[in-house]
Design a protein around this nucleic acid. Structure first.
Lengths: 250, 250
DNA sequence: CCAGCAGGTTGATCTACATCAGTGTGATGC
DNA sequence: GCATCACACTGATGTAGATCAACCTGCTGG
């Protein structure tokens, strides 16, 4: 069982901050989380954490660093499905199915807590509130994938880019990793291209356009919202979808 | 409690057939399902079953007919996220969040069983196996959305079309609604266009190309796979992803 | 101190798809 | 028996974004 200082530490973790936005967490929930959070592993940039087609994978909670989940096509093209930031689950689907249907790769050096299928189910039995919170978080992830699908299907390259940056901003704010007006962002234009179904060259042009329009500036690893409201308008971003202002379940 | 004849009837339903592919269901699971399945509603073509932005929605299980879930953009464009066929859940996310983030519309006349949040949670408490099966089904749905995202991001129009038709075939086969070599399909070229992020005009051309290549024929409401293996190859379709050959959990 | 390299930037050309503006056809209604 | 409507189909033209081929910048390492 976790001791008091560990519980204080967990309360400030990105994972707890995120779940707390969905469900008000009691001390015993935090204690269970603290136990879950214990087994840490480090991963170097570019070394896959989860492999497509491989079975018996663990799931993880990102403690620090950024990662991305992606699929490779026989043609060699790749599509990034989502980026993961601290507090995010990854590989939940890989533990439910026997084999993983996607890859996960660190973008920066990463620290993550390892969760076996057993750990997870045990934790859920102990505190149903936690299970509910995780189910909510998983549904939020699915809603983001759907939003991403809309990006690729029906939005222009510039709208997509604006939407992605707004979404990342909202997610980082939730876990305390964004300052007002911007955030530090380790994504290269190649990664952005693979996420948005564009070429790196075109990503570059789109970023220039957004900068020249005075909407956002993304340069040397920092995103700055030059005119937040105008960008929201331009990208048809639905504020309601990630910006909650309090736990949904008290 | 459901009687014996009701249990026999449920066993043949698309819903039970689908879940049985994931988890071997015991008689008491079927009894609970039969109770869930009781409250039926009918919906006419084009009348939304679930509304974007509206709260306190029910979830449904499709008993007969086809539906589609979609989002509308301020520009008036729409993107179909997925098609639903008999046995599919719909609106699971709408009951988890307070308000729905998407619409669901019947494509043909539809019969569906209504599930309140309460019904669902109660059923899960009674038979955890059923809960597991539903969680699996939800994860499969998410995997399909991800695959659809790959379509839009990195596959050509023709590959997308091939992929969609193969996927629909596999899903229909699972619930006993496809014959070998093809299936009845009520989707208009407009619906296909909205699903694949194309114009209806281009859908028409793509269908012609696939037909002329001798891969698939989609005409007057029937899809016929002229050369299944070649189409799988062409569309880079991963057979493993929907074609299971037995319950994953005994 | 320079070599090598990853990432960013720019211009020229090509192409897959959209858009527009029709024609054809079979089902439904009065 | 003709009007209407939904859907399928076709050709001409326009455009967003890909691809190729440079060059530039700031790091890292020997």
């Amino acid at each position: 069982m976790a001791d008091a200082s560990a519980i204080l530490a967990i309360q400030d973790s990105p994972f707890a901050r995120k779940l707390a936005a969905f469900v008000a967490l009691a001390p015993q929930d935090l204690a269970v989380m603290s136990d879950l959070y214990r087994r840490r592993r480090k991963f170097a940039v570019g070394v896959d954490m989860i492999h497509q087609g491989q079975s018996d994978q663990s799931a993880y909670v990102l403690a620090s660093g950024w990662a991305c989940s992606y699929k490779l096509l026989p043609s060699g093209a790749r599509q990034i499905v989502d980026f993961q930031i601290p507090g995010d689950f990854l590989g939940l689907r890989s533990v439910l199915f026997r084999t993983s249907d996607h890859n996960v790769e660190p973008i920066t050096p990463v620290q993550a807590s390892v969760l076996s299928q057993r750990d997870l189910l045990d934790a859920f039995m102990q505190t149903p509130r936690l299970a509910t919170a995780v189910l909510w978080a998983a549904s939020r992830d699915e809603a983001m994938v759907v939003e991403h699908l809309i990006d690729l299907g029906r939005r222009s390259a510039a709208e997509r880019m604006g939407h992605l940056l707004l979404e990342l901003g909202a997610r980082l704010r939730l876990v305390g990793l964004a300052e007002k007006g911007g955030f530090a962002c380790p994504l290269s234009q190649y990664l952005l291209a693979d996420a948005m179904g564009l070429s790196a060259v075109h990503v570059n042009r789109v970023l220039r356009e957004l900068r020249e329009e005075g909407l956002v500036t993304f340069q040397r690893g920092r995103v700055v919202f030059d005119d937040y409201d105008a960008l929201v308008e331009f990208a048809a971003y639905d504020r309601a979808y990630l910006d909650h202002d309090g736990p949904l379940l008290k």
